[in-house]
Design a binder for these strands. Structure first.
Lengths: 234, 234
DNA sequence: TTATCATTGTCTCAGTTTGTAACAATAAGA
DNA sequence: TCTTATTGTTACAAACTGAGACAATGATAA
């Protein structure tokens, strides 16, 4: 990836909170920049002749290998206080990029349009970008401290996800195609941060008429085998 | 208002959908540009050293005279297709502003961060800005065609308002301090675009424990006088 | 004064949804 | 065959909602 100042719109960036579900926990992708100890959300910039949503999809594909990701834009952060040029300067210098000339625009003040994405954990092989040495999953209750206002961004993403959980189908994107009712319940519990009642949950989800029942899944455990379900796409 | 290129961040604008309630209808403020026949949402730009939210409040105060307005950011529009430099060139020329030099930056591509505001209709005396000759209320079902993607912005604002109506207190900002239950119901009906049942609405609102009951309001009409209510602020 | 009218506050009652528990039906191992 | 953990389903009370009934009440007309 090149970051020359001729290709991108100045002052505008995006950051993405990429949610996955594994080990009964909700996790997000976090990048670590070379030789700085700085952690950040995956983000990027918008090309001169590119739409905002296209730019975000392009960036997410580069980071996860996935196209056709479920995406929601949730807020644009534009406080003066989030402009701390020393942070970007540190990152650039750690990567031997000159902070004058071609890359100087990266030190300017930026607005960040924030998106959250819901993806199937097992489909992804996270890839760091040119400035970072890792891109890894972190459980949302075990996050490192993030640079700038990225902690706030994550918090707002999670809040929006919770607010949306009953209006937009959330489980669809965090689970494999076929799953048990219990797995779906675990996803809801991880997002909401609270236990749910089994029978109420089952009744509520089934009453939405969005699930198709398939064969049973035999786990080898000594108890009744649960049915597998999939979402009916329409 | 000056619009010289040294004061504002390039490529970033905001637009606001300012809701008011009058004559049993939901209305929004629309500006008309001098000698162009172009209608648009009130908007503006962000100064170099100013936070986004500050900029929006500053602009709204200039347009309405109100400070302390209820504001929600709801989406950022960044499609390539919304960049039609001829439109802004038309507006500038109609105001005898040179499209080269100091104001040339206004012809660039812009992202627009969109907000909606809820205000008390009677508190406002709309004021046009430097480029427009009017700033007036239009009922949402009688809007003129708006320039660029401003129709889309209004539609999304209304959709967001409807989605939020049960989660955020909406009536509070669209009515005077004291109001009758019927007036509040009319606000809900205008926003949702459907009739509501009187008794159900009353029961639901009262069960929220957010209203304080005051003296009756005698209208001079030949029927029982309704109580006045106000929101309990906490 | 009395009758009429439109609107309001409250109540009722049935139908629906939700919280909670109970119970029978498994799969696999002992 | 018995035990154990988990699942699908049913049952029942509590809470909520839709729809209507009804009395109370300001003002006007008779």
């Amino acid at each position: 990836m090149k970051l020359g100042n001729s290709d991108y719109l100045p002052h505008i960036a995006y950051d993405s909170v990429i949610f996955g579900f594994s080990g009964e926990k909700l996790k997000i992708l976090i990048m670590k920049y070379h030789n700085t100890g700085l952690f950040a959300l995956p983000g990027g910039f918008v090309k001169i002749d590119e739409s905002l949503n296209e730019a975000v999809r392009r960036g997410l594909q580069e980071r996860t290998g996935l196209s056709n990701i479920y995406l929601e834009q949730f807020y644009t952060f534009g406080n003066v206080e989030r402009h701390i040029p020393e942070v970007m300067a540190t990152i650039l210098r750690a990567n031997n990029f000159d902070t004058e000339g071609e890359y100087e625009w990266l030190l300017d003040r930026f607005f960040s349009v924030a998106y959250y994405a819901l993806i199937n954990y097992n489909d992804v092989i996270p890839k760091p970008d040119a400035l970072s040495d890792s891109c890894d999953w972190y459980a949302i209750d075990e996050l490192p401290t993030l640079m700038l206002d990225h902690d706030t961004i994550v918090e707002k993403a999670l809040q929006t996800l919770r607010d949306n959980i009953d209006r937009k189908l959330v489980g669809m994107n965090l689970l494999p195609t076929r799953f048990t009712m219990n797995e779906l319940q675990k996803v809801y519990e991880a997002i909401l941060g609270e236990k749910l009642r089994r029978t109420s949950f089952q009744r509520k989800i089934l009453s939405l008429n969005i699930l198709e029942r398939h064969e049973k899944q035999f786990s080898g455990k000594a108890h009744k085998a649960p049915y597998l379900y999939s979402f009916t796409k329409k």
